[in-house]
Design a protein around this nucleic acid. Structure first.
Lengths: 342, 342
DNA sequence: TCTAGCACTCAGGTCGGACAAGTGCCAATT
DNA sequence: AATTGGCACTTGTCCGACCTGAGTGCTAGA
C-alpha cells in the first residue's frame, strides 16, 4: 500500500499530538482533534499502513501509536512547516545578546538563551580557532626567565600561555622577537602561521635560538591544541523534566554533555558549511555516542562564508522540531551578525 | 532517656548501613551486621529513644529506621572518623593534577577529579580575583583607536578586555601609560589598585586624559566585575544515579548548579578562612536555595594564609560523608600546594 | 474507497489474601 | 536497672483474579 497524502497528514498529526501530549495517539483521538474529514476506521487503516512502513509503532497491542525515529525523520524532512518566532521571542534574542561585553560573553549568553527559548539543553562551541586569523601576538616578560605569550584573533578571542625558559631573556631580544612574530603572523590563518613558525629560529643569532624556539613551540601549542576544544553547555535541568521514558537516557546524556570529546563529535558532524540550514539528528542516528532516545538540532554560525563553530539543542526524540529548528536558526543568524560586525 | 554511648554507636551503624544499602535499617539487621553485643530487643529500645530525640525516623510504621538531617549532623560532628584515602587515590590526585598546564587547567582538572573520586557532582570556584594581587598590566594597540588591556595576577590568571576609544591613540603615550600603570599596580591587591586608579589621569597632559581614563575604567571593570564570578562544575551525571527518592530534587539541583549566583552562595557561606577543616551542610540547612535533600561538603583552598576560593562536592543527604570529606580535604590541600609553588 | 460495527487484545487499576519485616510492650532474667 | 525473649500488632509489598477502557483489526455493506 503506497503512502499517499492523507497518510502523511495522519503522520503529521500523530507527531504533533504525541509531542504535545506525550501519550500514544489513537485513531479516535486523531479524528476528534483534527479535521481529517474521514472516520476513525479509515484512519486506522492508514495507521496500519504507516506502521507497516515503519513510521509509527505501538508500545503494546492495545495502545495508540507513537512515531518511530523514521517517522520523525520524515516529519522533519517533508512535513514540518517553518514556525516563525513570535515577536516576543525575537525581542528576547536581541535584548539578551546585545548586552554582551566580549566574545566569551556572547557565547555564554547564547547558550543560555537557546536553553531558555527551547526549554531544552543547549550546547555552543566557542569559535574554532583553526578558522580564525591572527590579529596580534604579544610577549610579556613576567620574570627573567618566564614569558607570557598572548595571542589575539580577529574574532576577538584571546589565548594566553606562560613559557618557562631555561635561560635568561633579554628585553631587547623580546622586542625584536615580538616585532618579527607579528610581521610573520598578522592576518594569516592558523595553519599558515603554524607552517611558517618552523623557520623562525633561523632568523636569530644561535645564542638566542632557545628562547625563540621556546616561544614558537608554545605559540604553536596554543594554535593547535586549544583548537576548537571548548564548548559551553546550559539548560541541563530541562532534561530532568521529561517523563520516565527519558530517565534511562539521562545519565549517559549528562555524561556526554560533560565530555568535550563526545560533544564535539556530536556538534562537528555537520559543521562543514555555514548557512547550511539547520541539521537534525534523530535518535539512533546518534548511536555512535550511545544516545538512542536523543535528538540533536545543530547549525553552524559565523560571518557569511566560513563557519566558526556550531551550536546545538539537545533533547528527547519527542521534541518540538519546528520550534526548536526555528529557534536555533534565528539565534545562529543573530550571533553570526554580531560576530560579523566586530 | 539520655543518649548514651551505645545509642550513639547504634546511630553510627544506622547511618553507615543506610548509606551503603539505601534501605531502611531494622533492629535485626543491625545486630546481624555489627558486633553490638546485645540483642535486637535492646536495640529496639535504643532506636526508640533515638527517634524520640529526632535523630532517626521511620518512613512508615513497619519499616526500619532512616537517619534524619539531625542524625546525619550528629554523625558528621561526633561519630565519623577520618577515613584516610587509599594510596591509589592519593596517586590519582597527584597524577591528575600534575599534568595541568595553567591555572584554568588546574581548576578544570580539579573539578573532574573531585567528581570522579566521590562519584558525585563537584563545584570549584575559580580563584577569586579580589584576593589576588596584580603582577602585570599589558596594553596592546589593536588598531588606531582600540586597545587590548591584559591583566595578569599572581595566581597566573589572565583577564583581558578591549577598550574602544573615541580618539586616536599614540604609541608612545601607550608606552608611557603602560609603564606608569605597572609602577602603580604591580604587587598590590585589587582593592588598593582600584583606589589608586582614580588619580591616574591627573599625571598626564589634559589631551591624553580621555585615553588614560578609558583604560583606567576598563581596568577597573575587570578588577571588580569579573570578581569571583566563575565556577566550574562536573559530575552532574552522577546525580542521576541515585534512587527515585532523589529524583524530585534533581531538577532544582541541576538548575542551581547552572545558576552562578546560587552556586556562589552555596560555596561562599563558609569561605571566610582557609585551612578551616571541611564544612558540611546537610539537607534543610541549605533550605535557602530550595534544596532539601541535598548535602554540600565545602572547603576553601589557596596558599596558606588567605583563601582564594572554595570547592565543594554536592550530593544527596544520604552520602558517604567520611569518604567525601576526606576526598575534598585532600584535593584542596594538594591544589593549594600547587598554587603556592607558582 | 470509505464506513460502521463487532470481536479481540491488553495495560492499568482495584481488591483481597498471604507474607515478611519490623515494631512495641511486657514479663522474666541477670 | 538493664537486658532479653516472646508475642501481638501494624503495615508495606507481592501476587493473582478480576474488571474496565482504550484501541485495534477485520469484515460486510454502502
Amino acid at each position: 500500500m503506497p503512502i499517499d497524502d492523507r497518510k502523511l497528514e495522519v503522520l503529521r498529526a500523530i507527531v504533533e499530538d504525541y509531542v504535545a501530549t506525550q501519550e500514544p495517539i489513537g485513531s479516535k483521538a486523531l479524528v476528534d482533534r483534527h479535521q481529517l474529514g474521514v472516520s476513525s476506521a479509515t484512519i486506522r487503516n492508514d495507521m496500519s499502513a504507516l506502521e507497516e512502513e515503519g513510521y509509527i509503532t505501538q508500545p503494546h497491542t492495545s495502545a495508540g501509536r507513537v512515531p518511530t525515529d523514521k517517522g520523525y525523520r520524515l516529519f522533519v524532512d517533508r512535513l514540518s512547516t517553518v514556525k516563525p518566532l513570535s515577536s516576543a521571542e525575537r525581542r528576547a534574542i536581541r535584548s539578551f545578546l546585545d548586552g554582551a561585553v566580549d566574545l566569551d560573553d556572547v557565547i555564554r549568553r547564547t547558550v543560555r538563551l537557546l536553553a531558555q527559548l527551547t526549554r531544552q539543553a543547549a550546547v555552543v562551541q566557542y569559535p574554532s580557532l583553526t578558522r580564525s586569523t591572527v590579529r596580534h601576538v604579544e610577549l610579556v616578560l613576567l620574570s627573567s626567565s618566564r614569558i607570557l605569550v598572548v595571542l589575539i584573533t580577529d574574532t576577538g578571542r584571546v589565548e594566553q600561555r606562560v613559557v618557562e625558559l631555561p635561560v635568561e631573556v633579554d628585553a631587547s631580544l623580546l622586542g625584536d622577537l615580538r616585532a618579527r612574530l607579528n610581521a610573520l603572523a598578522a592576518g594569516l590563518d592558523f595553519a599558515s602561521v603554524a607552517s611558517k613558525l618552523g623557520s623562525l629560529p633561523e632568523q636569530f643569532a644561535p645564542e638566542d635560538r632557545p628562547v625563540v624556539s621556546g616561544v614558537a613551540v608554545t605559540l604553536l601549542e596554543s594554535l593547535v591544541e586549544r583548537g576548537d576544544e571548548r564548548v559551553a553547555v546550559a539548560g541541563t535541568a530541562n532534561l530532568a523534566r521529561h517523563g520516565p521514558e527519558f530517565d534511562s537516557e539521562l545519565e549517559p546524556l549528562l555524561s556526554a554533555l560533560e565530555e568535550q570529546v563526545v560533544l564535539l563529535k556530536l556538534l562537528g558532524q555537520a559543521t562543514s558549511t555555514t548557512q547550511t540550514p539547520v541539521t537534525v539528528r534523530i535518535g539512533h542516528e546518534n548511536a555512535t555516542s550511545g544516545l538512542l532516545s536523543t535528538s540533536i538540532v545543530t547549525t553552524g554560525y559565523g560571518p557569511r562564508d566560513h563557519a566558526l563553530g556550531s551550536m546545538a539543542v539537545v533533547g528527547p526524540t519527542r521534541m518540538d522540531y519546528p520550534g526548536t529548528i526555528a529557534a536555533v536558526g534565528a539565534v545562529a543568524r543573530y550571533v553570526s551578525q554580531i560576530l560579523d560586525s566586530n
